[in-house]
Design a protein around this nucleic acid. Structure first.
Length: 617
DNA sequence: GCCGTTTTCGGCCCGACTGTTTTCAGTCG
């Protein structure tokens, strides 16, 4: 865990503790916001002094002191004092969907419930019903939430969430077509999926209607009613006039469980929220449901400062003489139909969804100086791919033809090195033979008039001590060297930093592959000092990889932001093992865009001449 | 606890839905 993650976790926990203690809610919100700010910070927090911390939006004098204290001593006294006052088991109860600080505090203070076991007991003996505003239905909901367990809070990797979202979107569009009378004009993906985060808590859809719209109706809108009947839906959480929330199976095609009911494994599910808005509000609504939450708050505060108010129905002139929301008094919005309109009327350039994380993008949009982010069409080559020679499923020829089909001018063959025994890594002799095969294939392709350059390469293991898995003479024969860590991924940060530095500084290495070795939701991987690696990568002209596989996405978005700020070159590679792996490029692109990457800094976006010149440097 | 295009004090984004209530508190995003 990096220092940033450690500080963010402590501040977030302080927010929870403050809520449970019934302290000023705005104090809790301030800690929660500070936690998110530190989590997405593009610098190691331990390198910042107090003045630098206070300069960050959302960090004031007091929280800066706590962060400085933690970085110096490894402790945060105020956190320890708060934690001593609150039973630790309450945190688990707070995580149950539907339960918030007010209710959990009442459970604790009135019924002396301090953990999940106590909550179960209070349900069984009926004492929970004695709490204010606690009836039969509320108890049933809590029982369901307990049964759902960790399933409710687990984030889904984008590589699983995106295909499900695209299928649900087409099913919603099919419903719209079948029921033309509802006049559905658009169905769009919003939320963190549109922002391209590496993991997704819930899927958000925006549905626009040109038909009748009454947000105060007490009946469920028919299109939302239809949505809750889709075959993927496992549970309906809420359904109303403008909104429905359900839990959907992530893998609808997995076989039904045939064993005993009590041993049935929890089926992976994800929450899906659908919001219905009138067509004229499309832009404002898409912005609102895309978020992030903090980005929205910044925009709404900006609107207020300009005498306007912003909600999902539009940007309106503020009217202080009434409490009735503008959309209910028939006010005409200043802007609402498109995102561009709303940003423009706020005095801002349109901000790409991947940048909407409240990390300074609004200030850049005000000056119209947002970076021109890299796009899928900019990617012209793949520099990290495997064949059947090691653990890939494609022959060299199949790999190259797929790269050509996708319009790439260059493809690198980078099978595993000799120490990767489980991946059938190439011995010295086999690698020398493969280099010859690459030369022959290039000649054949030229004869056949197929314009693609095949590079002889290797994904060389960075051994635990930082040495590479082949000697320099052999590496010198290769066109491209990707050096990656595969073993000893639990090293302490200092050892890991020194290990990766050796690879970055090695004159034969072009690209540092999946630098931390993390696997999302499965393995944290290394926590090297990124700022040290980035400075070295810049100095030695070594590119850092964004491994595009959705289980890796390594570098992650915050690392990319640091690397871009540090002037590093970035490679976006699919690490292809199978022909379908090429499709993971979209996820690497989203991560790159979240980090503010431009085509100029991405080696995969260069033309062949520039790329080859860099590889021969 | 944070922050300032009215403010260094006094606010703090805004709306939907549910369940338990006789008008709204709590939760969520």
């Amino acid at each position: 865990m990096s220092q940033n993650e450690a500080v963010a976790a402590l501040l977030s926990d302080m927010a929870t503790l403050l809520e449970l203690l019934g302290e000023n809610q705005f104090k809790a919100i301030a800690h929660s916001r500070a936690s998110r700010v530190i989590e997405s910070l593009d610098k190691p927090v331990e390198t910042l002094d107090k003045a630098a911390l206070v300069a960050i939006d959302g960090i004031g004098d007091k929280i800066a002191n706590k962060i400085v204290e933690f970085c110096a001593t490894g402790r945060m006294k105020e956190h320890e004092e708060l934690a001593a006052q609150v039973p630790g088991g309450l945190r688990q109860i707070m995580e149950l969907p539907g339960l918030g600080p007010k209710t959990v505090r009442a459970m604790w203070q009135t019924l002396n419930i301090t953990d999940l076991a106590g909550l179960r007991k209070a349900i069984d003996d009926g004492s929970l019903l004695t709490l204010p505003r606690m009836g039969e239905k509320a108890v049933e909901k809590i029982k369901g939430a307990i049964a759902l367990g960790e399933e409710a809070t687990r984030r889904t990797p984008i590589g699983l969430a995106m295909p499900l979202a695209e299928r649900l979107r087409s099913e919603l569009l099919a419903l719209a077509k079948k029921h033309a009378k509802f006049k559905i004009t658009r169905v769009e993906i919003a939320g963190s999926l549109r922002r391209g985060r590496d993991t997704i808590a819930d899927l958000d859809f925006l549905v626009c209607t040109a038909g009748a719209f009454d947000s105060s109706s007490k009946t469920v809108h028919p299109i939302l009613e239809e949505f809750t009947k889709l075959p993927e839906v496992r549970q309906i959480i809420v359904a109303g006039a403008t909104k429905a929330s359900v839990r959907c199976a992530i893998n609808i095609h997995t076989a039904r469980w045939k064993g005993g009911a009590d041993q049935q494994p929890a089926e992976p599910t994800i929450q899906v929220d659908v919001r219905l808005v009138p067509e004229g509000s499309f832009g404002a609504a898409w912005m609102y449901f895309t978020g992030s939450k903090d980005h929205n708050v910044v925009l709404r505060q900006r609107a207020l400062a300009q005498g306007m108010t912003l909600n999902e129905y539009g940007l309106f002139k503020e009217d202080k003489t009434t409490d009735v929301p503008p959309q209910h008094r028939g006010a005409k919005p200043v802007a609402a139909a498109t995102e561009e309109d709303v940003f423009k009327k706020l005095g801002l350039a349109w901000v790409p969804p991947e940048s909407r994380e409240s990390v300074g993008e609004v200030a850049l949009a005000e000056k119209d100086s947002l970076p021109e982010l890299i796009e899928l069409a900019d990617i012209k080559c793949e520099l990290h791919a495997h064949t059947t020679a090691s653990d890939g499923k494609m022959s060299m020829r199949e790999l190259v033809m797929e790269a050509h089909r996708r319009g790439f001018h260059t493809i690198a063959v980078t099978d595993h090195s000799k120490s990767s025994a489980v991946a059938n890594g190439l011995s010295v002799e086999r690698l020398k033979d493969q280099i010859k095969q690459v030369k022959q294939l290039n000649k054949q392709l030229a004869d056949e008039g197929i314009d693609i350059k095949v590079l002889a390469g290797s994904e060389v293991d960075i051994l635990a001590d930082g040495t590479l898995d082949y000697d320099d003479d052999l590496l010198a024969e290769l066109d491209v060297v990707v050096a990656s860590p595969h073993v000893a991924l639990s090293q302490d940060p200092k050892t890991a930093t020194e290990r990766l530095l050796k690879a970055i500084e090695h004159p034969m290495v072009h690209i540092l592959g999946h630098p931390t070795g993390r696997l999302i939701n499965r393995r944290n991987g290394l926590s090297p000092d990124m700022s040290t690696l980035i400075a070295a990568a810049k100095e030695h002209d070594t590119a850092l990889e964004i491994n595009a596989h959705w289980m890796r996405l390594d570098l992650r978005d915050t690392h990319v932001r640091m690397a871009v700020a540090g002037g590093c070159k970035i490679a976006i590679d699919c690490d292809d093992h199978d022909i379908t792996d090429f499709d993971n490029l979209r996820y690497g692109l989203l991560t790159a865009r979240r980090g503010g990457l431009t085509a100029a800094s991405c080696v995969n976006a260069w033309d062949r001449k520039k790329l080859l010149a860099w590889l021969k440097r």
